[in-house]
Nucleic acid binder design. Structure first.
Length: 224
DNA sequence: GCGACAG
DNA sequence: ATCTTGTCGC
């Protein structure tokens, strides 16, 4: 095995790397006093030729913006379901390197452990930053769940089931806004599901996405 | 073989 | 993800 931080890998190598790295993901809370929360997202320019990573750091409490950073670089690989982190994390790390204030918690656009090999983009990024991360996705990658109540703040767990019928909890389907499709919240790294859901709810504004992710989304898509 | 499939 | 006009609702 070469190095654990090699991003130029073939799909087969990426899968092997994920299986190895997933064992290092911490699923219990290991969070300092939260004073700064970051949101990350990746956008694309030039018809996908350029990858644009955006990070926004908000103060807690209050959610006022403290800092923002953008990093652009040539896109390194196509989107392949299950291998998203190899396409987005390298650029995200460069954007984080430009920050002068280090966050205490990070929210990522995508899945955390709610991934076939339990290493979604939020977990992978958290491992490399050695920071607590939460995955907030707009769609499901894997797992199943019951219907979610319509009230804002309501949530239901979602899980994977093995051949013996044993369930493994992956995350929570959260109704972040009434009458809108729910979001998929899953622990990334150094955080448990309950704490993850608590923080996402705390960061909710009037929209579907929590503020950190919503603002990073706008910055990555060069709208804000 | 037939779907499903984060961004 | 990205390309796009109008439209429904608070």
């Amino acid at each position: 095995m070469e190095s654990l931080h090699d991003w130029d890998v073939t799909p087969a190598q990426a899968v092997a790397l994920q299986q190895c790295l997933a064992a290092s993901v911490e699923r219990d809370d290991r969070i300092a006093d939260v004073q700064r929360i970051a949101g990350v997202d990746i956008g694309f320019e030039d018809d996908g030729e350029t990858t644009r990573a955006a990070v926004v750091v908000l103060k807690w409490p209050g959610l006022g913006e403290l800092e923002r950073a953008v990093h652009r670089e040539p896109t390194r690989m196509p989107y392949i379901p299950g291998l998203l982190s190899f396409r987005e994390v390298p650029a995200a790390l460069q954007a984080f390197a430009r920050l002068t204030h280090s966050p205490d918690l990070v929210m990522v656009d995508g899945q955390g452990i709610a991934h076939p090999r339990r290493l979604g983009v939020a977990s992978h990024l958290g491992l490399w930053l050695d920071l607590p991360t939460i995955g907030v996705a707009k769609k499901r990658l894997c797992g199943r769940h019951d219907s979610v109540p319509e009230a804002r703040g309501a949530w239901t767990p979602f899980w994977d089931q093995d051949a013996q019928g044993q369930r493994e909890e992956l995350g929570a389907v959260l109704r972040s806004r009434q009458g809108v499709k729910p979001v998929y919240v899953s622990p990334g790294h150094r955080i448990g599901l309950d704490t993850a859901v608590t923080w996402v709810v705390r960061c909710l504004g009037r929209t579907k996405l929590p503020e950190p992710t919503r603002l990073a989304d706008r910055l990555a898509s060069r709208r804000g």
